[in-house]
């Protein structure tokens, strides 16, 4: 069943078309990788899906409703750049407390926050001040925040951008677990083709226009990758006869 439907979507900034005539559907429970070169409109598309911006023309429907419709948000969003004022004295608990869906007793609030932090592998950081966290820890706090709300769709804009290599693997495992256990549909903007081949069930390629859509192994051909990223990425082309992508 399609839970996100995008029809003839165009977004223009001044005279520049950031996105042109985009059409696709996303099925419930998918892990969708949104790929494309820098400036291709990926982050713009993500912001349109979560309702932070509105299309110039065309429509987006989440569960048959526009994303900007007031009410309980069902699309969680982890931005690429979180503009944190590192001098602001706010603890991780206080930050997550702001996103709790309602008011509970202090002990219940603590247990909800602890559980979300445990799921993203950073239990015990409740009392730390946000500004003292590493980039990777902050990214996990942002993911923990979206877990506090009953979202059935999560949009993550380059979630591993500020995480080291070991942490990256762990992060994708956490997201995969979230998808399997809760049935959360994931839309992940990523430059890492390794992730796309290993974790994504669907891929959507954009470069202002829709360039491809489908199962990564089938649609991410050598020619398409070269046209998106240039010839240096051709080594990521997937060989259907192998289980893993290979380096040419």
């Amino acid at each position: 069943m399609a839970i996100i439907e995008v029809h003839n979507l165009t977004k223009r900034f001044g005279q520049v078309n950031a996105l042109e005539d985009i059409n696709f559907k996303i099925e419930s429970g998918d892990i969708v990788a949104l790929v494309g070169p820098n400036g291709s409109g990926k982050s713009t598309l993500a912001k349109l899906i979560v309702g932070l911006d509105t299309p110039t023309s065309g429509t987006i429907h989440i569960h048959h409703e526009p994303p900007t419709k007031p009410g309980v948000p069902r699309v969680g969003y982890v931005p690429q750049h979180f503009a944190l004022d590192r001098t602001l004295p706010m603890t991780v608990f206080e930050f997550l407390h702001l996103s709790l869906p309602g008011t509970f007793s202090r002990s219940v609030e603590e247990s909800i926050v602890t559980s979300a932090l445990t799921r993203v592998g950073i239990a015990g950081l409740q009392s730390n001040i946000l500004g003292t966290l590493s980039g990777g820890q902050l990214q996990r706090v942002l993911i923990a925040r979206v877990l506090l709300q009953p979202h059935d769709i999560l949009v993550l804009d380059e979630p591993s951008a500020s995480i080291d290599v070991g942490g990256e693997e762990e992060l994708y495992s956490i997201l995969q677990k979230l998808n399997k256990e809760d049935g959360t549909t994931l839309i992940i903007i990523s430059h890492e083709l390794d992730f796309v081949f290993r974790f994504a069930t669907q891929v959507i390629c954009v470069n202002r226009r829709l360039m491809c859509r489908g199962i990564p192994k089938e649609v991410l051909t050598k020619d398409l990758l070269e046209s998106l990223y240039g010839s240096h990425t051709a080594h990521y082309h997937h060989d259907p006869n192998c289980d893993h992508h290979h380096h040419q």
Binding site: V50, L52, V72, P73, P79, F82, L84, D85, L98, S99
Partner: peptide, 11 residues
């Protein structure tokens, strides 16, 4: 104060 974009998304 901490997250204008996030607060807008939270309704």
């Amino acid at each position: 104060t901490i997250d204008p974009e996030g607060s807008s998304l939270a309704g």
